[in-house]
């Protein structure tokens, strides 16, 4: 049985003057799933999520969240959010911050349960200023789930977490989703989307580029990467089977392709002097780069 839709976007656009931040986006996100929204900086991810949260109004199109208008008080009662916040009041204790945020909700989650899920038992008596970066992220997470939300927005949630904390965090998020909650995750960590999401939505230039399970996203795009030293020019390589992008560094060429076997055959036929041949499988990060048409070096710098 298909879970009910929690969020529906129908032909949504957001315009800032001449700039089109989100362009005719239609999307339905379901309960019980972790949906990851992926895209390079400036792709329209944050604008989309802010519209879903009712912080921004779309220029055109309609959004329904939990059967209501985004941002209306009933919808907000059922929503939690972890946004990119660089600080909370430094002189307040963790227990006080939790107390305050729980007061916003009519039916908050039991305090002990929040503390347990977020793993903040030992931090309750500490002032926010005295926490490490990863501990602060855990507090932000605790505040996002303290209202027992049916819908949880997580905006780049694991920035600053160490590997152990990150894996524990993923486990808790999956646990929340399997309990029937909807989780909307934006992330730069492709590994995170691959490991955590049931569904990946790729956005670029405000448009939907791909939508599917991590496996489907990978199947849709070049499955292989071929590296070699060759004298063939880029234009010639582009005409070979399944070629996506072609990059050159010195004499070495890196080629993405959906048909690695055919490409290798064609390459060897076209250039008898070809050397240093390597073939590797694409991971999600390569799939993502292909979809958004970005050079890997650019993403790493972001």
């Amino acid at each position: 049985m298909q879970n009910p839709n929690i969020i529906e976007l129908s032909q949504v656009s957001k315009r800032y003057g001449a700039q089109l931040a989100v362009d005719d986006l239609s999307l339905a996100l379901r309960a019980g799933e972790v949906s990851a929204i992926l895209g390079p900086n400036g792709a329209g991810k944050t604008t989309s999520v802010h519209m879903m949260m009712g912080l921004l109004r779309p220029t055109e199109g309609a959004i329904t969240v939990l059967g209501g208008e985004p941002g209306n008080p009933q919808v907000r009662q059922r929503t939690g959010a972890m946004l990119q916040v660089s600080g909370l009041p430094e002189t307040l204790k963790v227990s006080e911050l939790l107390h305050l945020f729980q007061s916003y909700y009519r039916k908050p989650l039991q305090k002990d349960e929040v503390v347990e899920l977020a793993g903040i038992e030992k931090l309750m008596g500490r002032r926010f200023a005295h926490l490490s970066g990863g501990e602060k992220q855990r507090i932000m997470f605790a505040l996002s789930i303290c209202g027992d939300p049916e819908l949880l927005f997580l905006d780049e949630p694991t920035v600053g977490m160490d590997v152990g904390t990150r894996h524990r965090f993923w486990e808790v998020v999956r646990q929340l989703a399997s309990g029937g909650r909807a989780v909307v995750l934006t992330t730069h960590y492709l590994e995170e989307a691959d490991a955590l999401a049931d569904r990946v939505v790729v956005i670029n230039n405000g448009q939907l580029v791909a939508d599917g399970t991590p496996a489907e996203i990978k199947a849709e795009v070049p499955s292989g990467k071929v590296r070699c030293r060759t004298t063939l020019d880029t234009a010639r390589i582009s005409t070979l089977p399944g070629v996506g992008y072609v990059r050159r560094e010195g004499g070495m060429v890196t080629i993405s392709t959906s048909e690695p076997e055919d490409l290798v055959r064609a390459l060897l036929q076209a250039d008898a002097d070809l050397t240093e041949l390597e073939v590797s499988k694409a991971d999600l990060s390569q799939a993502f780069l292909h979809l958004t048409d970005q050079a890997p070096t650019k993403l790493e710098a972001a």
């Binding site: 912080l55 008080p73 916040v85």
Partner: peptide
């Protein structure tokens, strides 16, 4: 000014407060 710059103001405005 501080809460606006930190993003806390936005977080609170996104909450049911």
């Amino acid at each position: 000014a501080i809460e606006r710059s930190q993003g806390l103001m936005l977080l609170k405005f996104a909450s049911p407060m």
